[in-house]
Design a protein around this nucleic acid. Structure first.
Lengths: 223, 223
DNA sequence: ACCTGAACACCGTTCAAGT
DNA sequence: ACCTGAACACCGTTCAAGT
């Protein structure tokens, strides 16, 4: 490996990949993704912006490292082994959502990158492993991972977007959706508006996840 | 309404909302979302960047109008009425994916905005209508819409991201995923790598959609 | 009414030069 | 080896002034 901190001659570096990613995640939580700039990050580390490019070739590379770091939390949440496949898959999907929710704009960071780091790959391997051991064939297991991941990321993207625009926190908040719906004639949207504008995102997520799991049960399995 | 083109006195305006959105979509298709700047768009319309702000208060507002325009294609694709609910829902989800795929980075534009335009609302109303008429209760119908939409947008985000980074088009393309997987020890990823790195996104999408529909069938319905 | 010109306060990225 | 300083080529947005 030829990373820059191998030789410890000269002044000890003020920067390194791990510390930079950590500081970037702090900045993300404080200010959000749009305010996470290379200059601000450099400022937070007491360094000039250009210095960051010794450790990350591009901002995109930094974001990928951040996504991988975000996913590392997913391993921490204990995955109940021994359980039934449906329980284990449910736990894994919940852990993914929780990991993304743990950082402001976490889903946006994750969706915008393609991490192939160890934590990300380990998570994917675990999900597919649960399904293969449950008797699903390779194609179904792999595609089930993609479906669950796409749904979870898509859901959390929405959830965190809703958190970004607080609407008015007034108790009788009409909300842009409500205004638009009542303005036009959308009978089904009108009838379901209370559900659609509910902020109980956990309930929405659990519903979708249950749909996916129940759908998987209808597929042929070995055991 | 007090939109700027109500009175037709003076020089005819070179700009208007509809033409601007159309030009922006052309630019999007040619250059992608990252290259869609207010200055480049203004250039394409033979105008200075500042002039755009008479029609859109912010770039975000322009993007929202673009998302609504992208969704208008979804209405065009005929939705088979009379069919069974599962067939209709399948058709609607496919139409959403097709509409997003019709423009470069279409899913990214859509996911980054919250359109409450007529086409977007009409689509949502139609989906919920199909489900309510099939006998699903309001909460299930509304949440099923969210699940299908989140999955579809999440999937198309991935699909268009894969299109952006062409990898190497060589026949024996290892790909970053393959390299990373074979480097570490991920038995289940290794076994399913052919499926995971398949570019048959339609097959992946159809698999997830089938899962959701089959999951919906397990829910209580009236008829 | 509609657009220009010019500015303000930023960006990501590069790279010679210093220590 | 590691970082500074300064530049390059941009951004979104605002707004007085022109026509």
């Amino acid at each position: 490996m030829s990373n820059p901190s191998t030789r410890t001659r000269g002044r000890p570096p003020r920067l390194d990949q791990a510390r930079t990613v950590e500081t970037a995640l702090d900045l993300l939580d404080e200010a959000g993704l749009d305010a996470l700039t290379m200059r601000r990050l450099a400022d937070a580390m007491g360094v000039q912006a250009g210095a960051l490019y010794r450790y990350f070739a591009t901002k995109q590379e930094l974001l990928t490292a951040m996504a991988e770091r975000i996913l590392s939390d997913v391993g921490a949440s204990a995955i109940p082994a021994g359980e039934e496949w449906s329980e284990r898959l449910t736990g894994l999907a919940r852990a993914l959502r929780t990991a993304l929710l743990a950082h402001r704009d976490g889903a946006r960071v994750f969706a915008g990158t393609h991490s192939t780091g160890t934590h990300t790959l380990h998570f994917a391997d675990t999900v597919i492993g649960v399904l293969r051991e449950a008797g699903f064939d390779d194609a179904d297991a792999a595609r089930a991972l993609m479906t669950v991941a796409n749904f979870t990321v898509g859901h959390t993207l929405e959830e965190q977007a809703a958190a970004r625009e607080p609407g008015t926190e007034a108790p009788a908040d009409p909300g842009r959706l409500a205004v638009a719906v009542t303005a036009g004639s959308y009978p089904h949207l009108t009838a379901t508006l209370p559900v659609l504008s509910s902020t109980d995102f956990t309930a929405h997520f659990e519903f979708g996840l249950r749909l996916l799991i129940n759908g998987l049960r209808t597929l042929p399995q070995q055991h």
